[in-house]
Every structure is written in C-alpha cells, then in structure tokens.
Design a protein around this nucleic acid. Structure first.
Ligand SMILES: [Zn+2]
Ligand SMILES: [Zn+2]
Ligand SMILES: [Zn+2]
Ligand SMILES: [Zn+2]
Lengths: 130, 130
DNA sequence: TCATACATGGGACTCATTCTCAAATATTGG
DNA sequence: CCAATATTTGAGAATGAGTCCCATGTATGA
C-alpha cells in the first residue's frame, strides 16, 4: 500500500541478491543465499521485502507447480514469461494481441476488473542438449 | 498413469458431488460437503480421487491466488477459463490463436515440451450489480 | 467363495508462508 | 548531535493445504 519504505541494510541486501541472479528464485533460496554472505537476513524479512518489491512492481512473481512463489527482477511494464522448467531460464515476452484478447473475452461476458495469468513453460535448448 | 480405477462408493460420491456444483471447488470444500451427506469420505481419499480425475482429464484444476487447488468437471478437450473472483462463476473459453501463439513463442526461442497456463479472472455482471 | 491387488482413512507429518511482539533502528524535528 | 517516534526486524510459534503411513476394508476376477 505504502510507498514510503525505509532503506534498511536488510532491504538493500535482498535487493542486491536479486540482482545477482537472472532467473526466478524463491524466498527460501534467497534466504539461504543471504545466510552465507555477511550478515544474514531473517526469513520473515525476506518474505516481507519480496512482497513489497512485488507490490511496488519492482519484481515479478510466478508460482511453481508445487506452489512456491518465485521472484525475479524484470523489466518494468506488463509482460509475460516463457520459462524453462528445468533450469528456470527466463524470456520475457510481450504480446498486445493477447492483452486485447483477454480484455475482449472478459467484457464480452460482462466481466469487469479483468486480470489474467499467462505463462509459457518448456525445456530450453541447453537443457534439451543435456 | 493407470486408467484402471475401481468403482468404490467413495469415488462415486466424490464424482457425484462434483456434478452438483458448476463452479470450481477445493478438495476441502468437497470434503465438508460430503461430510454432511450419508457416509463421509476421508480427506485423503478426496484428494486422491480429485488428482486421479484430473490425471484422467475428467476435471480441470486451477489455483487460487492463495495457492489452493480448485477442481471442476469441464467439457473435454483443451480450453481455458474466465472466472469470477467473487462467486467463481466459470466460462470456458477456447482460442486456437492463443495456442498457436504460445507454441510459436516457445519454438522461436528453442523451447520444447511446451505447456502453458492461461486464465482470465474478473468480476462477473451479477457480482458487480450486487 | 477366495485370493489378492487395490482402495480407504485417521492421524502424524511436511513445508511454505504468516503471525507475534519485544527489541533494534531509521527518520526527523529541535 | 540527540531524543522522540514511527518503522522494521527476526526468532520462534502458528497456520493450513496437501502428503504419507499403514493397518484395515473391499472390488474384482477366477
Ligand atoms: Zn533450461
Ligand atoms: Zn498480459
Ligand atoms: Zn461473480
Ligand atoms: Zn491453451
């Protein structure tokens, strides 16, 4: 809700850690990454910070098949993801036609406050080559 | 993987209960619905049965925002859903162009074994009028 | 009817995520 | 710089969906 966030070393640490990975990572992974380096950050704080970053549109969130939230610093603006189920390599994809389609289907059926989830998964070329 | 399922009264009960609702329901909801009628069905069995029905393509599964799996008996064949976040009213939608788009984006990036998740949510006309 | 492979369910267990709240700390007005 | 104050932190407890274990029950086919 609020946009007034204090700059604590924990928040900086989480943000910095996110910058070091290019794929989606879970709160737990980030927590153990931070455990090793310098002063660790509490798990609760990692969760809170990631949620806030997501609220602020700083990171994107996707859910794995086994219900784990994964976070990634993405480019700003609405987009979707094509991601490798094996190595989590991520490709951001944009498609105005998909957005229009979703909106059209919804309003054609009388729905308002439309939202949508569109994610494509697969096995990337590298992972296919094993 | 197997398709050899025995016809037990529990399985019949779960399947019948599913037929009585037209929206997506969770395993827990189905369990408490069944608790009231006749002989209840164990929670573990409800989960198992729903999973099997999903495997067999008898029901569709969607995840709520708070990571709960919801099941619904849908028409056969691949399709997606437009669903009301308030009352869970569901509209099945088909769109060959979306399917082609997903496949094209994936192969253009060297991905194989492509899968995708496409769900549209909103507030239905009735819930807006509420 | 019998043998037996498969199904059931109560309860313990997992595990991501949230909650609690006292102690730590960033911010700010003076 | 300093004290007052509003936030933030984090260790551990709590939550809750879903899974597992396994002794008991049963659908099914010979
Ligand atoms: Zn890969
Ligand atoms: Zn979109
Ligand atoms: Zn509705
Ligand atoms: Zn599709």
């Amino acid at each position: 809700m609020s946009t007034n966030r204090r700059e604590t070393k924990q928040r900086v640490a989480v943000s910095a850690a996110l910058d070091q990975v290019n794929e989606f990572v879970s709160a737990q992974q980030l927590h153990s990454i931070l455990r090793d380096t310098s002063d660790g950050v509490g798990l609760a704080t990692v969760y809170r910070t990631l949620q806030q970053l997501a609220e602020d549109g700083e990171v994107d969130v996707v859910k794995t098949a086994d219900n784990e939230s994964m976070y990634r610093r993405c480019s700003r603006g609405h987009h979707h993801h094509l991601l490798c189920r094996s190595c989590r390599r991520t490709v951001e994809v944009e498609s105005p036609s998909i957005e229009k389609w979703a909106q059209k289907v919804a309003s054609a059926n009388g729905f308002a406050e439309v939202d949508h989830v569109v994610e494509i998964t697969g096995i990337c070329a590298d992972c296919q080559a094993r």
